[in-house]
Every structure is written in structure tokens, then in C-alpha cells.
Design a protein around this nucleic acid. Sequence first.
DNA 1: ACCCAGCCTTGATAATCATCAAGCAGTCAT
DNA 2: ATGACTGCTTGATGATTATCAAGGCTGGGT
Lengths: 250, 250
Amino acid sequence: MRESQRAEIRALPLFRDMRAESFDRLLQAGYVQSFPPQLDLFEQGEAADFLHILIEGMVELYASWQARESTMTIVRPVGTFILAACIRDAPYLMSARTLEKSRLVMVPAPDLRAVFRSDPAFAMSTIDELAQCYRAVVRHSKTLKLRTARERLAAYVLRQSERDGGAASFVLPVEKRMLASYLGMTAENLSRAFKTLLDDGVKVDGNRIIITDRAALVARAAPDPLIDGPDASESGVVPLRRAATGRPES
Amino acid sequence: MRESQRAEIRALPLFRDMRAESFDRLLQAGYVQSFPPQLDLFEQGEAADFLHILIEGMVELYASWQARESTMTIVRPVGTFILAACIRDAPYLMSARTLEKSRLVMVPAPDLRAVFRSDPAFAMSTIDELAQCYRAVVRHSKTLKLRTARERLAAYVLRQSERDGGAASFVLPVEKRMLASYLGMTAENLSRAFKTLLDDGVKVDGNRIIITDRAALVARAAPDPLIDGPDASESGVVPLRRAATGRPES
DNA sequence: ACCCAGCCTTGATAATCATCAAGCAGTCAT
DNA sequence: ATGACTGCTTGATGATTATCAAGGCTGGGT
């Protein structure tokens, strides 16, 4: 692992407050591995043996039932995933596959648990991290239950644009079919939803989204900090936490 | 507070491992209050000042956006809610109202945080609790995204029946319209969904649900431990945790 | 007993969304 | 370039679900 990547991991909210020797122990217990694109890392139902830290690449977490499949979240570097399952020593609720060539640190769950038992600062960070993950999923549930597909897409476009500092134009970070699944619709429906958003000031050119009328889009999306984030705490500024750290919902 | 109620709280997984003096401190810092039915306890967006512990009654956690509303979960005694918001010192993502006359212990969030900073066992329990809450919401998201309304209802009926030890008949714990909202559909659609479940071995008589053909119902619901629980850990039996403790998803 | 209000159901209709099938536009390898 | 492949779009259709309106049932209060 490169020193700069180590520093990036150390800078994550989950790891930045722990003792140096705890951090060393975690990373030394962990395996660094590279994977090709489209590779299954694990499947839902398997025992959660490792905390995964994504250093490079992109990983999809998805769920399946019967013949159906739905992407639950996308993890980007540097970010951790599957923390909760490790803690509870329980089966994964989601499957994971790489979307690009990816490099991961895999920390054995027993080491993870040992470290947060011995390092109170890490225990506190874990609590904070889990609370944030919980709230992220609640937000996603809210958008699924309270908004129509069109509204979810509008809110997503707005959120992505703000992630880029309010840019009027941005490139989708994932394939449209995956975005569709993440937003709880089919690829066909996403395509049509984009069409209807023409009336709300959104143009599409391949993977590029252009916001032509932000006010109209805001009217459609009705963005709400209690759904669309950020998860700002009362007691401090949390600037661009999601963007800066790429923290996923696990 | 009655001594038996105090013991019930102490028996919750979240509180049973902590030091006695920590537990005393939490409860002494807390206020015990009774509320009439249909009373708003707090609204989403407000600062999360208190961890709530429900001793008697029933509480609905719901979310709203624009003019729409959706019930996210129902809390029954003895159970805690709104833990994550307290930890992050962040605004509530959900609103809460009593459904029945209810009695609550409200522990100020600063005391909560102080105690898990000073009591490692409580920190561990908090981690475990949050991990479980997280996984509960992920499960609910999965059922929303992967199953149709009819399938969600079938799975719900099956789950409730198993909560009652596999009884062929049980009484709905909440009004149908609330169940509908919880399952992500309208009251009208729930009514019709119950009708279609006649073909799958489910009869309805008012608030009473009767399973006439469990095999048919199982075929429809295709229950899956990774969606419908329980959240059994690898390392131990977790018998009827949800039923026994009434643990909610917060 | 009566009325009233709230909850549930039912029917008619419309909106939303999924499915299936086809075609198009890029990309990549040969 | 050719062809295969993949991802996206489009159209036609049907299923699912929501909305609106009306009516029935039930329980509580007077």
C-alpha cells in the first residue's frame, strides 16, 4: 500500500481519532488485494469475515431476492463498507462486486472487534460512523417511500450537482441502468424519467447531465436536508463530508 | 417508575451490560413522562435532545415530505428510539407520535453521550445496537425494492405469525392504514392486496388474520432470513429478540 | 337507541411503472 | 471496415398502484 493511501485511510472519520498503534494493528492484520472489474467480492448470506476498505476503484453493493436484484449503494474511494455485519458477526445482507479494477484492504472482523474493545476512541468513531450509516439508509428509505421515480431522479440530479459545488453540468458516476436500480426503477423508466425532466430544466447528453433551469429543478425535487443531506451535526460544520471522504452507506 | 419497568429497561440488550452506576446515572438524568394518545412527541427537523425509552403504550415514527407522510416504524414497549440522532447531535429524521396512552423515559442526549464515553461496556452495547438498527433498515429497504406490495404483505403476515410462535391466526397490532403506510402502499391497495392473498391461504376477519394454507403463503412470500430476519449472529442463539424486547428500528 | 366520526372497503378511473421487443449508437476485437 | 457486443432508447402493451368518490361497518358518546 502506498503511504498516501495509508494517510487517506487514516484521515477517514472512522480512523482518524484512534490511537496510532491501534491503526497499525488494523492495517497489519489486513490484507491488501487487487481485483479485476466485475468480480464478486462476496455474496449476501456469507459470514462477514472482513471489514472492507476501498482504496482504488469502485464497488457496488446490491441485494437480491428470488430472481430480482437491486443496487443498494455504490462505494467510492476511500471508503469502508460492511461494517455493521462485521460487528454483529452476522451474514452479509448485501452482495458486493467491483465495477472497476479495485484495490481493497480487508481487515479480519475479529481484529476489528478486538481493536474497538481496546481503543475507546475507535469505539467512539465506530458509534458515530454507524449512526451516520443508519441515518443514510433512513434517508434513502424516505426518498423511496415519499417521492415518485421522477422526483427521486430530480433530487438525485440536484444532489450530484451540489456535490460538484453547484456545477450546472456533471457526468454520471455510474451507468444509467445502475442508477436506475439504485433509485428503485427500471432502466427504461429512468430513460423516460429523464425525458420528463426536460420540463424541469434538465438536459441529458449521454452520460452528461446539464441543468438548464435550476429553479425549475428545485421546484420539482423539493430538496430537503432531512432526506438529501448532508448529515450536518449541530455542534460543528461537516463540510462536504460525503464528497471529501466518499463515505458509503455502510 | 415501577421497579419492574426499571428491570425491563435494564434487561434490554442496550442496557444490560453496562455498569450499575452508569445505568443509574442515565435513569436519574432522565424524565419519566406520560402522554395521551395521538400526541406529537417531536417533529422531524428538531434537534435531537433526548433518547426516548418507551415503557408503556405504542409510538409511531413517521416521515413526511411535501404533503406526503409515511410511517417508518412502530415502537412497542420496552424499546428505545432515536438513538442515532442523539449520538450525532443531529436533527431528527423522523417525527414521533403516540398511538396509545404512553409512558416514556427521556434521557438527555448529553448524558447519554457522557455515559458511553465513560463506560466501555455501554459503548459496546451501543455499537451493537446501532449495527442492528442499521441492518433492520437495510432489510426494510430490501423488501421495498425487491418485492411487490402483495409480496411484502405476504411476508409481513408470515413474520407476524412466526412472532406469535407460528400461530395460524393473529390480530394486527396496528390499524390497517398504518400497516399500509409502513409497507409502502395506500390503504385501498392494502385492502385489495389482502383480497388477492385469499389465493395464497390468507383470510381476513376485521383485525384478525387467519392463515389457512401456510405452504401457499410461503410460496408467495418466499421468506428470506436476509430480509425477514431474525438478525441472528453466528456466534450465538438470539431467540425471539425482536418479540421479546420489542426493539424498534431506531 | 340514536347519531356521529373514524376506519375500512369497493368501484371507477387514471397515473405510474414494468415488461417485452426492437432498434440505435457507440466500443472493441479481429 | 466488419461484426459482435453492450448499453441506451423507444414504442407498444399490460400490470401495478394511486386517486377520487361513495358507501358500509363499528364503536363511542349522548
